[in-house]
Write a protein that binds this DNA or RNA. Structure first.
Length: 585
DNA sequence: AGCACGCCGACT
DNA sequence: GTCGGCGTGCTC
């Protein structure tokens, strides 16, 4: 007998091994096998008859049973093909940690029985979370709840009294939760995307929390959006899929709307007073418009707390004489300027640089901060309101300054006023999801401030349909506009995107490689290939280039064969090619 | 991805 | 005369 094993390698082809006499292996089992003279852990994807001469033997199984069902193996292969990455790297990113010494006794995963119809629902209403708790507590079958991050998994683990599968829990707990879920011993399991293949006795309920959150598709394997994998999983095993979000991705809204599967969008809850403040020509010198100044005065006078939300994490330093930004010599990205530490730091390579006396390009010596980051807003608001406590760190301050993540730290009704200092940070970036992001942030702010508060949106575009939809508490108007726009411009869900990028080693090399990649795609019908552009501000110098492909829904199958040679081997030049299907930004 | 093998510059 | 640079290629 021969067994075929996949590893965390960028190779499509499995490796074949001999099965030593007396060893029994199963498809979906983790094994340790020699590769490149070392022991590595892989997953058995096939067992077949054949002549094993010349093949190295499997060393040992990692568990005594399969860790993945046949259906989960197939799901992993689908995800790999869909994301133009390897079966092995996809599967190995979706498995629990291996046991320490004294490995435990475990049961094989259940195989889904065909015959159940799958159903996807999108829960958007204000009561979506309370309803989920109620539903999961009340029903009999197993449930898998996927949170965008570990914090969310911890919160929901406690709220649902669920088994923890995410890396925030100890390894032994995660392993136990994985196998308990498969045996139906843990009825509700909570994890992050690493738990997407957790075995469950079918038919199960699969839940994706905060469906719109970009953390559901971070860089690195598995290179697929958790929502897309769960949709396919629900279809294959006949499970029910529940997507939760006040502001779903346009893709999910469009799909669910067509199936009349949107729940709670007509629920009326009381909404805060929403004020838009035009920042044209104001924000340069001061972060507060008149309406926001009034909001702070009114609410603090009534003893209510104010939260100012800033989308930019860090400010930059600009030379007003030549307009040049201080950039990292190595990475080319603008350096983050901290007023507190009086230092510049690169957000990519973390290199710290002392504050320059003069502009390195023109010699000008009046370098000034650019953009409103939390630190700068805090300083400006403190100056404007010297008698108020203003803080980025203390949530009990009268005025709290923070990033969008801070919205979650206040339960509804606890805030008198939320001010979005500059919504346009999201609208102005050259990203087709800008509108979606701005809408999501403003809606979340309105939900957080609650019915007795006030939301102040500072923006250069007070008439933008995303702003208007939040003001009028009308989701449908936003999605209607946004879907129209996506249809006209050919963006998801109507067409799919793929980003091909190259990190070159020597100058000019990146450019040559990216052109080679683009050349390989010539002649494939139905594609729009955008011209290669340097990635980042000084991308050309740093050798980072990218181009974007737009195509039909079957895009990965169209371009996969042409791009495969660039992905499996790093060829002559040594430049690294990366392919990102369905990029989130 | 790692890791070894393989040909050309600065050290004991 | 070697140590070591990373460019190239293989891993069952």
């Amino acid at each position: 007998m021969i067994c075929d094993v996949v590893f965390d390698l960028p190779r499509q082809q499995p490796f074949s091994y001999a099965i030593p006499p007396g060893m029994t292996l199963y498809r979906g089992q983790r094994v340790s096998a020699p590769l490149h003279g070392r022991s590595r852990i892989g997953v058995v994807v096939e067992l077949r008859h054949g002549e094993a001469t010349g093949l190295k033997p499997i060393e040992r199984p990692v568990e005594s049973v399969a860790i993945l069902s046949t259906a989960a193996l197939a799901l992993g292969r689908w995800a790999a093909e869909e994301s133009l990455s390897s079966w092995g790297s996809t599967l190995l990113a979706l498995l629990p940690p291996v046991a320490g010494p004294g490995g435990d006794v475990v049961a094989p995963p259940p195989e889904p029985r065909p015959g159940h119809a799958s159903l996807t629902e999108l829960w958007v209403g204000a009561a979506r979370e309370a309803r989920l708790v109620e539903r999961l507590r009340g029903e009999a079958g197993s449930a898998l709840v996927i949170a965008p991050d570990r914090e969310g998994a911890a919160r929901w683990g406690a709220r649902l009294d669920a088994a923890r599968l995410d890396s925030g829990a100890p390894d032994t707990v995660r392993r136990a939760a994985w196998f308990a879920a498969g045996r139906g011993r843990a009825r509700i399991s909570v994890g992050t995307r690493s738990a997407l293949l957790t075995p469950l006795p079918p038919p199960a309920t699969l839940v994706l929390l905060d469906e719109h959150d970009a953390a559901h598709k971070p860089p690195g394997p598995p290179r697929i959006h958790s929502r897309d994998l769960l949709r396919q999983r629900a279809m294959l095993e006949g499970s029910r899929l529940v997507l939760l979000s006040a502001t779903p991705s346009v893709e999910s809204w469009w799909r669910a709307d067509a199936q009349q599967a949107i729940r709670g969008d007509l629920e009326e809850t009381s909404w805060p007073e929403v004020v838009t403040a035009d920042t044209r020509g104001i924000l340069r010198n001061h972060p507060l418009t008149l309406p926001l100044t009034r909001g702070i005065e009114d609410m603090t006078r009534r003893g209510r707390r104010v939260l100012l939300v800033v989308t930019r994490r860090a400010g930059a330093l600009i030379c007003p004489e030549c307009g040049g930004l201080m950039r990292c010599d190595d990475c080319g990205v603008p350096l983050a300027f901290s007023r507190e530490t009086k230092a510049l730091r690169c957000r990519l390579c973390a290199k710290a640089e002392p504050l320059p006396e003069r502009c390195p390009s023109c010699g000008g010596h009046r370098l000034s901060p650019l953009g409103w980051d939390p630190e700068r807003v805090e300083a400006a608001v403190s100056r404007r309101f010297p008698r108020l406590t203003v803080s980025r760190a203390d949530p009990r301050a009268q005025v709290v300054v923070g990033t969008p993540a801070a919205l979650r730290r206040f339960s509804p009704g606890r805030l008198g006023c939320v001010g979005l200092v500059a919504l346009d940070g999201l609208l102005s970036v050259p990203d087709f999801r800008g509108g979606e992001r701005a809408f999501a942030l403003a809606w979340a702010a309105a939900e957080a401030v609650g019915p007795n508060g006030r939301l102040i949106i500072q923006t250069l575009h007070p008439e933008h349909y995303a702003v208007r939809a939040v003001k009028e508490q009308d989701r449908r108007s936003f999605y209607k506009q946004e879907i129209l726009l996506r249809t006209e411009l050919g963006y998801p869900p109507f067409r799919r995107l793929c980003a091909v990028s190259v990190r070159g080693l020597r100058p000019g090399e990146g450019r040559a490689r990216i052109d080679e990649c683009a050349q390989a795609l010539r002649g494939i019908a139905g594609l729009t290939i955008y011209p290669p552009a340097p990635l980042g501000a000084s991308g050309a110098r740093s050798g980072r280039w990218q181009f974007v492909i737009k195509g039909p829904v079957e895009l990965p199958r169209l371009i996969g064969p042409a791009l495969a040679p660039f992905l499996t081997v790093r060829r002559r030049s040594g430049a690294v090619v990366e392919v990102e299907m369905d990029p989130v930004s």
